[in-house]
């Protein structure tokens, strides 16, 4: 279980990224975090793997306060929390398989990893994860030769290869075209179901949030302004979260297929 207790984050320039956040997220939940740019979605998600560190409050994962973690514990925490980025962050000049394997780095000794001596079990795991997201045949292709959607699938495979308990996805489909965005989100949802992974996804398209989420958390100016199951969500909820009427731009569309 993941629990935010009165978590706040003030950036060095004085900007308050998060204000007194209180949340409980159960194992295996698929949560979509919505809000305008600058509402604190990224900050919220990045607090969980400590890419940013909240300045007050407690953040508990399985009843341990991760805000106290130092170097060593932090590495362990990060092996358990896989992250998917908007720009997928694959190393362009490496093969797809090697990119996927880099998810194992946190589990490996430094010397072994410098020599590139990944255990056969890890290689098998990486390959089976590539097969699971449907791009197994691209294993030996260089990452920069794939399309945007394929690259994002590789980054899902890389995160799975970490064997995480939690998946954090920061605007994973924001730079994809609508049909591709749909397929990638479906893959993510299917896999998080199959492996019972707690998943937090930042999205700004409201139709997509409604389609995939079990639960929606709405942020505005660093505060939680909505938290509830997707069944309770209506257009009015989004108008409250965004603080303005819903516009065409807030919808992704393109899910005819």
């Amino acid at each position: 279980m993941l629990e935010f207790k009165d978590v706040s984050l003030t950036y060095p320039n004085g900007h308050q990224g998060l204000k007194n956040i209180n949340l409980k997220i159960n194992d295996g939940e698929f949560v979509v975090v919505v809000g305008m740019s600058g509402a604190g979605k990224s900050t919220l998600i990045r607090s969980i793997n400590r890419l940013v560190t909240p300045t007050s409050g407690e953040l508990l994962i399985d009843d341990e306060n991760i805000l106290k973690y130092k170097e060593n514990n932090l590495r362990k925490l990060r092996t358990k929390t896989g992250m998917i980025f908007q720009q997928h962050n694959l190393v362009k000049r490496m093969s797809v398989l090697r990119n996927t394997l880099s998810g194992r780095l946190g589990h490996m000794g430094t010397l072994r990893s410098l020599l590139g001596m990944f255990p056969q079990d890890d290689v098998n795991l990486a390959m089976s994860n590539l097969n699971r997201v449907g791009i197994g045949e691209k294993a030996y292709t260089r990452a920069d030769q794939l399309s945007g959607g394929q690259q994002q699938r590789v980054s899902i495979a890389r995160v799975l290869t970490q064997k995480p308990k939690v998946i954090l996805a920061d605007e994973p489909v924001a730079s994809l075209d609508p049909p591709t965005a749909h397929k990638v989100m479906s893959d993510l949802k299917r896999i998080s179901r199959e492996d019972n992974l707690t998943t937090l996804v930042n999205l700004h398209f409201i139709d997509m949030a409604q389609e995939f989420a079990d639960r929606i958390i709405g942020l505005r100016d660093g505060e939680v302004v909505f938290d509830g199951p997707v069944s309770e969500v209506s257009d009015k909820t989004f108008e409250e979260i965004y603080g303005r009427p819903i516009k065409e731009d807030d919808l992704l569309g393109g899910d005819e297929d």
């Binding site: 362990k76 962050n89 190393v91 000049r93 490496m94 880099s102 780095l105 490996m108 430094t110």
Partner: peptide, 28 residues
């Protein structure tokens, strides 16, 4: 630097982040 961040986010240490995140970008 986002590649380096990605390696760190998956639990890689500094040296691993340089080897897998930086070197492939700069070798050519």
């Amino acid at each position: 630097m986002s590649k380096v961040e990605a390696i760190k986010a998956s639990g890689g240490n500094r040296v691993q982040a340089m080897w897998y995140g930086v070197l492939p970008q700069v070798v050519p």
